[in-house]
Design a protein around this nucleic acid. Sequence first.
DNA 1: CGTAAAATTGACTGACTTCAAATTCGGTGG
DNA 2: CCACCGAATTTGAAGTCAGTCAATTTTACG
Lengths: 244, 244
Amino acid sequence: MTEADCLAVMDLPRAIRDVPREALFTRQGDSVPQCTVLLSGYMFRQKIVTREGRRQILGVQFPGDIIDLQNSLLHRSDHNVQALTRCSVAVIPVDALLSLAFERPGAGRAFWTASLVDGAMFRELAASLGRRDARSRIAHFLCEFGVRSELAGLGSRSAFELPMTQDHIADAMGLTPIHVNRSLRHLDTEGLIVRASRSVTIPDFDALAEVGDFTTGYLHIAAPQRSPDGVSARLPSLVDSRAF
Amino acid sequence: MTEADCLAVMDLPRAIRDVPREALFTRQGDSVPQCTVLLSGYMFRQKIVTREGRRQILGVQFPGDIIDLQNSLLHRSDHNVQALTRCSVAVIPVDALLSLAFERPGAGRAFWTASLVDGAMFRELAASLGRRDARSRIAHFLCEFGVRSELAGLGSRSAFELPMTQDHIADAMGLTPIHVNRSLRHLDTEGLIVRASRSVTIPDFDALAEVGDFTTGYLHIAAPQRSPDGVSARLPSLVDSRAF
DNA sequence: CGTAAAATTGACTGACTTCAAATTCGGTGG
DNA sequence: CCACCGAATTTGAAGTCAGTCAATTTTACG
């Protein structure tokens, strides 16, 4: 993505909106005529799975992430998007985004790639839910959260805010909150994590990564590309949210 | 996607290759300079999750599916693709596919949408692995396999070939083969499924769908669009594999 | 037929869940 | 600054779904 592409993305028509904490932003089954970039705060994707209403959290969105590109192209959303904290979002008409994508292959390819990275993260989640035990699953989750916090400029991989309750974590990990509590305590007494309120520090990131079999490969992190004049274009955070 | 788009897709340079049963087609970590369409046979995506080598099967590919679009755009594959049966594939250079995608927005959008449908299926898998018990998970899997067999023209949703061993199913469902065996037997004695060798029939599809909380929403099946001259363009099976 | 792979069965174990209650935390108003 | 209250976390005890280990039977296929 060239700098010109970047500027074109920043020039897209948009409306800035605030989303209160806990609000359902898009609803399973809805048709979504717009595309949204998260500017600040955290959101999460979530799906009601069974008739009894058990839910699975599919992922957390960080500032810079595109929230509902899939929903716009696929006509109907297959999952809910909900605000974890108070959020600020930029809402872009799909049509404008799509025309840009096909006028500027650089930008189009970046959007497409972002969708594919999304898919890669869902694959890793499936692998985690299917084949890792609770302790390892949570270790993996914390490592991912750390790395993504770092990428989003919200802390370092070994010290970050985790604005989720143990109920949220349970629904993300396919576990009960009770077992999440015990697993967290376990990691804590092992010295692998230190918890204080909503913040997590990881004294030895590599040790936790080993417990969770975590590697960054599936995040497909592009090396920050320094364009001649020092503007960096990096995925998956497509745009610098602070510049919007 | 217009008929002209369709024809342009069919005109892409390509090489037809055979893949023997069980062969690893792309390997986790490899860079994949081409894009592959499965023409006949079944493949599956698979990921080695833990140090001890436990694996998670992420999905089965049917004829007409694009196998490794994500791998080409993301530089390195984050999972393996393996042949379930003997397969025939069409290999297309990525460059040719990408230029077509950006020259013809109709085709480009179709490719992009196919990637997004892929993502939707991984989300549903994650939901299944996280929040459904073994019986319901397997019921859901069989429903999906039926519907996709029907879409691919390989049978009906209630009678199809399932070219997987119980070991495969176990790795797809995040279970042990022993438990898959018992769960299948359970569905069988309940009369919800009938098994004979590698073929499955579902006497009452809706009943099984209810057990698995299965709905087709997440497959984002487009209504077959009849273009004026009767050519149908449908996703997710992007191209009619028989015409290649 | 004969053989290896796949499916099936049984007995036992364990990770995670369920239900129930106690404790701590965080924010708000007095 | 402190008392209060609901939410969140923590702990305990008992139950269950699914895993492990170990055969045995059936099936597929040369």
